[in-house]
Design a protein around this nucleic acid. Structure first.
Lengths: 195, 195
DNA sequence: GTAAGAATCTAGCACTGCTAGCGACAGGAG
DNA sequence: CTCCTGTCGCTAGCAGTGCTAGATTCTTAC
């Protein structure tokens, strides 16, 4: 009983160890550097051990992505708690900061093909939490527009800015100007009308 | 002289043949299926021939991406010529249709890391053309907002919608509703105020 | 016809994700 | 304490990747 418990606990710890190692490696050198061999090296086990925890490399990336969603949700919640500006701006800045500071994590979550059941399905709780935070940010400006749809639009705009910026496809300055235009447009021109 | 010309012409044809083959392979089976061996097979040459035309696989993808930009620019220009609705909506629908119908091409252009000098530098003409078409679409609704920055915001929104939709991260229906919200928001609420 | 040169291919390297099958070790039974 | 048994992790290997050195074939010019 106890001995069985200890084993399961150790297994769970190693499971998390693998996820953390994959994430660190990705953040330090990009996902291309995350090979099963290097990952096995980092956790000081042989490659087959990885496959006793995850079905394949994709599953490891998926686990990293899900945990990343949880982290994003926490960051957005914290930002909302200590907000100074409008809810919408607070969330937008926190979201974009997350994407800028953790590009590899963001990549796994929202760019790479990681067949997580997002829309229906159901999506993992971490993702629902993150989306819920965005909904809360959009709610004050929604007016009579559909809240969930407007949140998807808000999210899409942020995602577009985040990925195009990261790919160096937008002018590096003008970041603040773009953000201002997005917020102004989505706010029904009620706020941010003039600088 | 003539014989030299013939050789150069044949070389150029083969150059284009490789690009077309890569693009076809990608559109049929995704970029993962585009390996140097399969590509060489498809053009009926051996792998080293590829490397006599391109520095590496990345350069081939880059070439496909640049030509894709030209195609997008043409599609947007044609849409503008035969427009029925507002310029903004016309361009948005054409852009999103392009992304939906040619996902692999879109991927190479705007998602994959393909160090093309986008912002400064200068970017290839095809890309400038495409961006120019977006500018033309945004111009009627810009008002006193900075045209280029607003176009970047417009592009980001479309790009966000395109990629999140393709990754199945948005609700499959509601597409039209999202588009309406984006256009309404960017149009300063002058148009599309009410359905 | 033959030599010079360019164009192309064969074969191989170091790497990838993944797995079959062996060996060592731990736990329980006598 | 010894032996058996089953789990666990490892070594070694497969088929595939991008890329390239060197041999080979083919074309051209004399």
């Amino acid at each position: 009983m106890t001995i069985q418990n200890r084993r399961e606990r150790e297994r769970a710890e190693r499971h998390q160890l693998i996820i953390d190692a994959a994430r660190e490696l990705a953040e330090e050198e990009g996902w291309d550097a995350v090979t099963t061999r290097r990952l096995a090296d980092k956790v000081e086990y042989s490659q087959p051990v990885l496959y006793s925890h995850f079905k394949g490399k994709d599953a490891i990336v998926r686990a990293v992505a899900v945990q990343g969603c949880g982290e994003l949700a926490r960051k957005l919640r914290k930002a909302r708690a200590t907000q100074h500006k409008s809810r919408l701006r607070t969330a937008a800045e926190a979201y974009l900061e997350f994407a800028r500071e953790r590009p590899a994590l963001y990549d796994a979550m929202f760019v790479r093909e990681v067949d997580i059941p997002w829309g229906t399905g159901e999506a993992p709780q971490e993702l629902r939490d993150a989306f819920g935070e965005l909904v809360a940010a959009v709610e004050p400006v929604a007016g009579e527009r559909d809240l969930e749809t407007l949140t998807e639009v808000f999210w899409s705009s942020l995602h577009g800015i985040a990925t195009l910026t990261h790919g160096k496809r937008l002018r590096p300055d003008h970041h603040e100007a773009r953000l201002g235009l997005v917020l102004g447009a989505l706010s029904l021109a009620k706020q941010e009308d003039r600088p």
